[in-house]
């Protein structure tokens, strides 16, 4: 097990390296350091000298990948690529193009993101499983058919409509919650109700359908038939056997997304002006602050790798037949 985890960590290294090179190439093709400087210096009274100055202060005056003028080893180390990516691997994200420390910002903005994402996940999971169980319970009745049709209908609506509609009806017309915003501590609740509600609602369609197929697969297995033949009631079989056995795919499915919760929801956060990592990323894209975007890409990849690892581990925990080697 330990060996396996260590191996996976080593395997992650070339992966992250690949991500890093790819993003670096992509972003530096788009934006030369000159462009970044001009972007940040604004419109009025910008001269070549000011641009040079900015580049030098931020360490962008080096060559991109290969420094031919430097001695020996520094041919590689004295380049923008080396200087900017080594820090990433040590989780030192450096300074954004607009001058703030990215690491500090990420630490601060992580919490609001989690405050939205975690309740959405948990409530969503509960609601979806409940509905899916109900549909399995009433299978082959008109309730199931309406349920399936409803799910397809819910799935066919763009998430943007849920957000726009929710904000319009609940916050604007009914005045039940603040339209947008965020606060620390307990007072955050009133700001979170609506985003969480909308997040859960927009996931119901696909979620319920997915869990329903999981349960159905389980229901048709022989042991369930045996249990029923034994005289267990419908509800008992469902909760004692079906739910418990279906928990394996459900759990592992959840574990994959756990780390990515940190990244926040891009759209939800910017609609509700929640100062999380999602809106941080969007702002960075819109203002073309690629130092932040690069950091977020890297962070995303790391979390993805962790997610994969967690899935593997959780498999062994819930299903003793699986052994990692």
């Amino acid at each position: 097990m330990i060996h396996y985890i260590i191996r996976r960590f080593l395997y992650a290294f070339p992966l992250l390296m690949g991500v890093n090179i790819l993003t670096f190439v992509l972003f530096f093709i788009i934006n030369s350091p000159d462009d970044m400087a001009r972007m940040q210096l604004g419109q009025k009274h910008v001269t070549e000298q000011a641009v040079e100055n900015w580049k030098q202060q931020r360490g962008y005056d080096l060559p991109l990948l290969w420094n031919a003028d430097a001695p020996q080893q520094e041919k590689i180390t004295q380049t923008i690529f080396y200087q900017k990516s080594v820090g990433l691997f040590l989780f030192r994200f450096g300074v954004s193009d607009s001058g703030r420390n990215i690491g500090a910002d990420i630490q601060e903005r992580m919490w609001p993101s989690l405050a939205v994402a975690v309740p959405t996940l948990i409530v969503g999971l509960l609601v979806n499983i409940c509905f899916a169980l109900m549909m399995v319970l009433f299978r082959n009745s008109y309730l199931e058919h309406t349920g399936i049709v409803l799910c397809v209908i819910l799935m066919s609506v763009s998430s943007l409509f849920y957000i726009i509609g929710g904000q319009f009806f609940i916050a604007k017309l009914l005045r039940l919650v603040p339209i947008s915003g965020y606060d620390d501590g307990i007072s955050a609740i009133k700001f979170l109700i609506l985003p969480v509600l909308i997040g859960v609602f927009s996931g119901i369609g696909s979620g319920v359908r997915w869990y329903r197929t999981l349960f159905l697969e389980e229901v048709e297995k022989d042991y369930v038939r045996t249990a029923r033949a034994k005289g267990l009631s419908e509800t008992q079989t469902l909760f004692r056997h079906v739910l418990r056995n279906a928990m394996i795919p459900i759990l592992t499915g959840v574990v994959v997304v756990l780390p990515l919760l940190f990244m926040g929801s891009l759209i939800m956060e910017s609609f509700f002006s929640i100062p999380g990592l999602g809106s941080y990323t969007i702002d960075a894209i819109n203002s073309q602050d690629f130092a932040i975007v690069r950091a977020m890409v890297f962070l995303g990849s790391v979390l993805y790798v962790i997610g994969l690892l967690l899935t593997d581990i959780s498999y062994t925990l819930v299903d003793p037949r699986v052994r990692l080697s």
Partner: peptide
């Protein structure tokens, strides 16, 4: 590798390109 990059960011970069 491709999967681990958040999709939106990859799309953003390419569209800018």
């Amino acid at each position: 590798t491709l999967n681990s990059i958040p999709g939106v960011l990859l799309i953003a970069a390419s569209i800018l390109m």
